Structures are given as C-alpha cells and as structure tokens.
Simulated assay, not measured.
Amino acid sequence: MKTRQFVTTVLAAGSLAISGLFAADPAPASAGTGACAGNFHVIREVNGFVEWGVTSQCTGDDWYPHQVTAQLETQVGGSWVPVLRRASPGSDQGKPVVVLQFHNDKCRTNTSNNYRMQAWISAGKHATSAISQPTSLPCGDVASE
C-alpha cells in the first residue's frame, strides 16, 4: 500500500509552528486560529510520464491568501537537481484547498532514477516548506515540456 506524507502548519495568534512530516490529519481549528495540512502525492511512472503533486488544505481563519509551490527534483550524483517547478494560480488564493497535480514530464524506461518533491505553502502571513522522501522510478532522465 502506498502512503502519503503530511506536513502540517499550525497558525495560532500570529505564530507559526511546524510539526514536520507525519501521517495524521491537522487538529481541528478553534476560534482565532487556523491550520493547514499539506501532503505529497505519490511520485510514480504512468504510461511513460512522471506523475507528482501536492495538496494543501486549510481550516479556520487567518489563512488568506493561500498559495502552494511544488518542485520535482531528480538526483544526479550526490546532488538534487530541479526538473520542474509550478505554483498555484492566483485564482486559487481564496480557496481553502489547493491541489497541484502534474503528469507531463516524460520518463524514459531504460534506467532507474531517484525523484523527490519540495513544497512551499504560504497561508496568510505564515509559510512553511517540506521535502518528500526520495522515490526510485524505472526511468531515465526527465525532460520537461
């Protein structure tokens, strides 16, 4: 069974607490506070393409504007190299749920390659970021469109 990893940002009285990666839902919001939980979609190969994405969901208040940026990276030697970076459109800033899902990067099936994602979530005056666990796919280099 494939699992997703969650990064939770708690917005409380003007402060930001990052609780890291764990498999749980955000705590319910109370008056004057809010919570945003983001999760990485499973990185996978589908019909010769790399499929990847991020979802962020906010509850309570103090989360507007809400924006998500995601970046797919591949490992080259000991370094992680950006492949493609995308941000949520301005029309999503007023939405409590933002989903970024991509599957437009070609995947060649001759070797294995490691991929990971970085995500940045901003909600109101608060922001956080996280890096997913690496995933090995039966692909070669990824070429963006």
Results as ranks from 00 to 15, higher is better:
residue 70 A to N: 02
residue 52 W to Q: 05
residue 106 K to G: 15
residue 78 G to P: 00
residue 97 V to K: 15
residue 133 Q to F: 11
residue 96 P to Y: 05
residue 39 N to V: 02
residue 119 A to Q: 04
residue 8 T to K: 08
residue 118 Q to W: 11
residue 102 F to C: 12
residue 54 V to D: 07
residue 94 G to M: 05
residue 24 A to I: 11
residue 115 Y to K: 03
residue 87 A to K: 14
residue 50 V to I: 11
residue 30 S to H: 12
residue 21 L to Y: 06
residue 109 T to I: 13
residue 55 T to Q: 07
residue 135 T to Q: 11
residue 112 S to R: 06
residue 65 P to V: 02
residue 5 Q to S: 12
residue 43 I to S: 08
residue 118 Q to G: 09
residue 104 N to C: 12
residue 48 G to I: 06
residue 115 Y to W: 02
residue 77 G to T: 00
residue 118 Q to I: 03
residue 39 N to Y: 07
residue 28 P to T: 07
residue 73 E to V: 01
residue 35 A to P: 06
residue 62 D to Q: 10
residue 113 N to A: 09
residue 82 P to N: 01
residue 11 L to A: 02
residue 49 F to Q: 15
residue 56 S to V: 02
residue 80 W to H: 00
residue 83 V to F: 02
residue 119 A to V: 04
residue 85 R to L: 13
residue 89 P to D: 04
residue 35 A to Q: 06
residue 12 A to L: 07
residue 11 L to I: 03
residue 118 Q to A: 06
residue 56 S to L: 01
residue 44 R to N: 12
residue 120 W to M: 09
residue 73 E to F: 07
residue 71 Q to T: 11
residue 94 G to W: 02
residue 98 V to L: 14
residue 23 A to P: 15
residue 58 C to D: 00
residue 31 A to S: 13
residue 103 H to A: 15
residue 32 G to F: 05
residue 109 T to L: 11
